[in-house]
Design a protein around this nucleic acid. Structure first.
Lengths: 362, 362
DNA sequence: GTGAAAGCGCTAACAT
DNA sequence: ATGTTAGCGCTTTCAC
């Protein structure tokens, strides 16, 4: 018994006594040959176990991979637990699906410096989502001769950009709190760089944060509160490398231990804020009477909890990124898309109690 | 000014006056040439804007795409909101990452019969996750001459399988409820087929459900409760096409409207159960005193809510599927992996109140 | 350590 | 409607 080499388009053509073009046409241009011949081709293909044109060979020939690469430099377990990232992924996947394009998750583990996966990715373009500014994978992507869209990152020359205006969004939130009267605040934020730092953040680390989004949000807070006389250097800012409710709780605890007098706790994500709410409850602090808590993202669970937050269109971000990449239409000059956000005042923010009230009850 | 054709390995070799082999080696086998020559090659490459070997051409030559295809026949907006699916995706992505393989989401919209995307996918294997038994995309995958693993689906001959024992898991849950004394129950389940049916489910539809998982869970319930004398045909079973908390709530309402006397409401997912809890609260039903509610999956939010549920290792399922596909080691005979589940008795299940209690209070 | 030759499997002009 | 020709860009024996 001999091992039959898998059938190819050529062998099928030979078997049929027709040219390869004809077989190719049977698959790709049914109108180019008689229905009868096409039927014969397809039938013989089945008989020979020919699975249809090899996708890779076709890609090489047509110079189209039929897929978009997604570079997510985060630890996957981090990304897949971040509702914002999942929403983005959903939107991007939808855009790809609409265009009949695949979406390739490029294995770019932040721990490994190995950029080879970027080089190996057979894709027609890349979407880069929230990777640190200095990431080597990003550099590798930019060297590939395919269009690229970055999201939630600083603008890169000649590269399309999708994002929200984090500064403006946070400024709006800050104004809300400032108008309520908050001046003594604390902050809980997501990781600022690739190195783990679970604890307080120096102003220097804030400025140098590798993650553009967190950097922008902190900067906006510093600016807004600075403008009303808050000494930012005195504001406790606690960072968490991981992103889950438990981290939010413990970080909130750290802030409250440092300064029990704060009247508002600003979290840079809803997940962290949900944890902060837990911690407040655990300490017997009533929200919002004793403590105002805010989040960012506008995830469903947060809205259910009545969290004051900023809703950002995560799904639309993904969709916009995909469209930008796939709309060859006017793919000449680099484009930028900035999506809107919306302050969602919930039931977790209110005016701080006065000193009097604090002593004599509400 | 002329448009420079993009550099290729061959043109680079020509420019350098060396053979293509040498250039190839410079990238793929650094030990095969002198460091000095390699340096020259790489430098010239940079100068000419050569981005390194074309991934598609390399794939064609090496017969390796370096990626795994994922077939998710669900509407993407459905899949990306199902925590079980996301967990699976995370596990699979992790397994791929470990192996340095990409993960390609194949655009297989259930609405389109268009199977071409499956044919176009340049992958070394497929993972198929919870698609309906009769899905044409699945059929297309099985025709491709690459290894395949299916998950949360019926066994297919010659195809590796990963899953949990849904019947056993649900039987355990049913036993828990039966031991508590529940005999009058209602059920809320996820979509059973590709056609939308938001409402009551006939026994026939239950048996013929296209989604293996839901079918198995309902069958297990029918069997367990049937064994203690419950007439399954009388049990209200309500289906929801979409999968979110609001659907769970409205479906629960539908069940309760049909039979307000039920003492337990069994939901086939935690998301639906969370909605049921909302609806119970809205109606002033105390859980578990007035109504027992159970879920399935063991998602974090459910555990936070104290839901009685069945925890299934969603992440491990994904990881196992990936490993099965990528571990060429003993990839001879088809293999099956069945992962364990765990009943999590929460605070939403208790013995039903007796008729007396119902009238005279707890 | 380096090069020559031989395709991987396919599609797209351009004939006929 | 079908065939001929000419690669797509690369890797890999196997010689030198």
């Amino acid at each position: 018994m001999h091992v039959r080499r898998p059938a190819t388009l050529a062998s099928l053509a030979a078997e049929l006594g027709v040219s390869r073009t004809t077989v190719s046409n049977a698959y790709n241009r049914p109108d180019q040959l008689s229905p009868e011949l096409r039927r014969r081709v397809l039938e013989t293909a089945r008989r020979l176990g020919y699975p249809g044109p090899d996708p890779v060979a076709r890609s090489l020939r047509t110079r189209k991979a039929g897929a978009v690469g997604l570079l997510l430099t985060e630890n996957l377990s981090y990304a897949f637990r971040d509702p914002a990232a999942i929403g983005f992924l959903e939107g991007l996947a939808l855009a790809c699906e609409d265009a009949g394009q695949g979406l390739l998750l490029v294995p770019a583990n932040p721990e490994r410096e190995d950029v080879a996966a970027v080089h190996r990715a057979g894709v027609d373009g890349f979407v880069v989502y929230s990777v640190p500014d200095d990431d080597p994978h990003l550099a590798a992507v930019l060297e590939r001769p395919v269009p690229t869209v970055v999201c939630d990152q600083p603008k890169i020359e000649n590269v399309d950009l999708v994002g929200i205006d984090d500064r403006a969004a946070v400024a709006e939130l800050a104004d809300h709190l400032i108008r309520l009267g908050h001046r003594r605040i604390g902050v809980v934020c997501m990781r600022l760089a690739r190195d783990r730092n679970d604890g307080f953040v120096t102003p220097d680390r804030q400025r140098k944060a590798h993650f553009h989004v967190q950097r922008a949000r902190l900067a906006a807070l510093a600016e807004s509160f600075g403008a009303v006389g808050v000494d930012w250097a005195r504001v406790p800012v606690v960072e968490r490398f991981d992103h889950n409710i438990a981290c939010g709780a413990s970080a909130a605890g750290q802030v409250l231990d440092r300064d029990p007098e704060i009247t508002a706790l600003i979290c840079t994500s809803d997940i962290l804020a949900l944890g902060a709410l837990q911690e407040a409850a655990r300490r017997g602090l009533r929200v919002p009477q004793d403590l105002t808590v805010t989040g960012f993202d506008g995830i469903p669970e947060a809205e259910r909890a009545g969290l004051t937050t900023v809703r950002q269109p995560v799904l639309e971000k993904g969709r916009a990124a995909g469209k930008l990449l796939l709309d060859i239409a006017e793919h000449n000059r680099p484009r930028s898309v900035t999506l809107g956000t919306e302050l969602v005042p919930g039931t977790t923010s209110a005016a701080p109690r006065t000193a009097e009230e604090r002593w004599f009850g509400p």
